[in-house]
Amino acid sequence: MSRPRPATLADIEEAALALPEVVREPETGGRPAFSVRGKAFAFARGPRKDAYDPRTGEPYDDVLVFRCTAEDKEAMVGDPDSPWFTTPHWNGYDAVLLLERDLGRLTAEELREVVTDAWLQRAPRRLAKEWLARAGDHPSR
């Protein structure tokens, strides 16, 4: 039996662009943001003082943000072994953070599920419903 493949940045892009009406900004290169009808669901964030390395005090320069439900956020950041986290800035927002350097702690399939769930949170209801009907029920639903 083969081991699941660790997730990579390319997996985020592949999963996001496989979903309907997704736009990548910038179109090529750079740290991407993915949106559906103008609503971002997964993006790379620049350094900010609210997310920093507790050992050095330096702001993280590799933070990734994914939209999610409040329940998923609680479960994802509540697990002490999880790579997912949040900061006070994100209190009240249905989103989780992940350091790019921790992508390999997830499998490609786990990351694909998170990206799909993020899209489902931001896509218009009708578009999401149509996609789910075509794709079969999403595993996390």
Rank of each mutant, 00 (worst) to 15 (best):
E58F: 08
E110L: 00
P80S: 14
I12E: 01
V114M: 11
V96L: 04
R134N: 09
E25N: 11
G92E: 10
L127C: 08
P32F: 02
D50H: 13
V115T: 02
V63T: 11
T69L: 03
R101Q: 10
K129C: 10
E21F: 14
A123T: 06
E113D: 14
L97I: 11
E109R: 01
R67F: 07
E25I: 13
T56N: 03
A16W: 00
L127V: 15
D79F: 12
H138R: 12
Q121R: 12
E27Y: 06
P32W: 02
P139G: 11
W131L: 09
G78H: 12
E109T: 06
D117R: 12
Y52D: 04
C68Y: 01
F66N: 01
K49C: 09
D79A: 14
L98W: 01
W90K: 02
N91K: 07
T28M: 09
Y60H: 15
G46H: 08
D102P: 02
L111Q: 01
K129F: 13
R37Q: 14
W131S: 06
A51C: 04
R31P: 07
D81E: 14
E13F: 05
A33V: 08
L106W: 01
P47L: 02
C68V: 08
W119C: 05
T107R: 01
E27L: 10
A51L: 02
L19Q: 03
A95N: 03
A15L: 05
H138S: 14
R126S: 14
P83R: 07
E130H: 12
A128F: 11
G57P: 09
I12Q: 00
K49L: 12
P20N: 09
R134I: 06
A70G: 10
P32A: 08
R126T: 12
D50R: 02
